[in-house]
Simulated assay, not measured.
Amino acid sequence: MKEHLHQNYHRVIEQPLSRVALMATVHCLSGCTIGEIAGMVIGTALGWSNAATIALAITLAFLSGYLLTMLPIVRAGYDYKAAMSIAFAADTASITIMEIVDNLMMLIIPGAMDAALDSLLFWGSLAIALMIAGVAAFPVNRWLIARGRGHALAHAHH
């Protein structure tokens, strides 16, 4: 098993660093987006305050981000506890940055948090906020992967 991890890690780092970081960022952003959209839609539909909506969106973004990372690790034969540990180590920095930037953008864009679910303002603001969040997380993911941390840990277990 240890040899398998060693081979996978080297296969990951043999690819151009920026490409690996981009793929990791897109993967993490995908997981975050699922939870973020669900949280924003639920909070907005229920008429919750901005703080409650953002808290739900952040919670669901972390949950879905971690689960998306855990799935291939569990499929590779690891138990849930090991997969969870790897996902926490791999994704926490990236998800944290994405959630801070995304939710700040939603608060900064005039009217975004108060927009109706069927409005272009709501969906356009959310899309822009998520794209900016991904751009913000990329250099951190690249830096972590270059040091064998962050998403490099998850890729070594696939």
Results as ranks from 00 to 15, higher is better:
4 H>N: 15
6 H>D: 15
7 Q>P: 07
9 Y>K: 10
12 V>C: 14
12 V>H: 09
13 I>M: 14
14 E>S: 15
14 E>P: 03
19 R>E: 13
23 M>V: 14
25 T>N: 11
32 C>E: 10
36 E>G: 10
39 G>H: 04
40 M>E: 10
40 M>W: 11
40 M>P: 00
40 M>V: 07
42 I>M: 09
43 G>D: 11
49 S>A: 12
50 N>A: 14
51 A>K: 10
52 A>W: 10
57 A>H: 05
58 I>P: 00
60 L>E: 00
61 A>H: 06
62 F>L: 11
65 G>P: 02
66 Y>W: 12
67 L>R: 07
71 L>I: 15
72 P>R: 05
74 V>G: 09
75 R>W: 04
87 A>S: 09
87 A>F: 01
89 A>C: 10
92 T>V: 06
92 T>I: 11
93 A>P: 02
94 S>N: 07
98 M>N: 00
101 V>S: 12
102 D>N: 13
103 N>C: 07
110 P>M: 03
113 M>K: 12
124 G>H: 09
126 L>R: 10
129 A>L: 04
130 L>R: 04
131 M>D: 05
131 M>C: 13
134 G>S: 03
138 F>R: 05
142 R>V: 02
144 L>K: 00
144 L>R: 03
146 A>H: 06
152 A>M: 03
152 A>F: 09
152 A>P: 05
158 H>R: 09
